[in-house]
Design a protein around this nucleic acid. Structure first.
Length: 311
DNA sequence: GTCCAGGGTGAAA
DNA sequence: TTTCACCCTGGA
């Protein structure tokens, strides 16, 4: 059932009414695991049941179907996915003079917090435990290719497999795909969602703490993974994800005790950044990553790339 | 070839 | 609160 008769030579794409979005950092920066760069530019992935290319053009974002279908509904779907309704302007204004976020905002505006499918996010971040992004993408991608169903011409153009399908496939199936010990967490999580014992959709309406509690109740979901799912899929902008890199940043920029526990740091950050926690978290993480990459190249990350500094 | 880190979690001390 | 096993892949 492939689509081959797309004879139309007219432009079949939609420009989103958003400003500049850093597609690479947003789609392929550790929030989502099923976006792949295309030779022709931009990133290719599946949102819901649509295979699309997302590209930066003229300071904006253009979405082009890769499944041979039209653009109907894509604008709404993609605006929602890219977190269009986040308070990015309020965030910018509030933290313009922040020692860490101010320079970050001027240096690379355009990061967004995605609003993903909750089940895919849960699966992805359980998979992320003591792993790395290339491997997470490998694991999540292979599970999707084996269990999802095709919505485009390429092997990766698949929907994310429903929890019922993952539950049916089972732990051993995931182990055979290279998930390692994470398989014993994912299979029961799939069961919980499939059986209705855990209603992910309802958690979008629930309070931050109630939703978090429900997620942490799952075996294999700790505070870190829960906060990832809350921030990237469950409409909880007050969620703040703490790993060791973020902990170091909080120490460096906000004088948190160097050995503060992850839990203490997360509480502190949520209190400090409030409704902008998830955005602040993303910018801080990105800044730390750039600094790390720079040092790995033997160079120094330019901490303040500001016009006035260069005068 | 070996060594090690990678956006953690759960269980035991 | 701290320590450690848990799987495995890619890079040094």
């Amino acid at each position: 059932m492939t689509i081959t008769d797309n004879a139309s030579t007219t432009t079949n794409s939609v420009q989103l009414p958003v400003g500049y979005v850093d597609i690479s950092a947003t789609l392929d920066g550790g929030q989502a695991f099923r976006w792949w760069p295309e030779e022709s530019g931009g990133y290719r992935g599946v949102v819901g049941r649509r295979t699309v290319n997302v590209s930066e053009i003229d300071g904006g974002v253009v979405v082009t179907p890769r499944d041979g279908k039209g653009v109907e509904g894509l604008e709404h779907t993609m605006l929602e996915y890219l977190g269009h309704d986040q308070d990015i302007e309020g965030f910018r204004t509030r933290f313009a003079d922040d020692p860490c976020l101010g320079p970050a905002l001027r240096g690379y505006s355009g990061l967004r917090v995605l609003r993903q499918d909750p089940w895919e996010a849960l699966f992805g971040f359980i998979t992320s435990s003591t792993s790395n992004i290339p491997r997470i993408k490998l694991n999540v991608g292979s599970a999707a290719e084996r269990l999802g169903y095709s919505v485009g011409p390429e092997a990766r153009d698949v929907t994310f497999p429903e929890p019922e399908v993952v539950a049916e496939a089972g732990e051993q199936f995931l182990r055979d795909l290279g998930f390692g010990f994470r398989a014993k967490y994912i299979a029961p999580a799939a069961e919980a969602v499939a059986s209705g014992q855990l209603r992910l959709a309802d958690l979008r309406e629930a309070s931050y703490s109630d939703a978090r509690e429900a997620l942490v109740a799952l075996h294999g979901v700790g505070e870190k993974v829960a906060d990832c799912v809350l921030a990237f899929s469950l409409d909880k902008p007050e969620s703040f994800i703490v790993d060791r890199h973020i902990l170091r940043a909080l120490h460096k920029w906000y004088d948190l005790p160097e050995k503060a526990s992850l839990s203490y740091a997360a509480d502190w950050a949520r209190d400090f950044f409030g409704e902008h926690s998830a955005l602040a978290n993303q910018y801080m993480f990105h800044r730390e990553r750039l600094a790390r990459r720079a040092s790995e190249w033997g160079g120094t990350h330019v901490e303040r790339a500001l016009p006035e500094d260069e005068v």
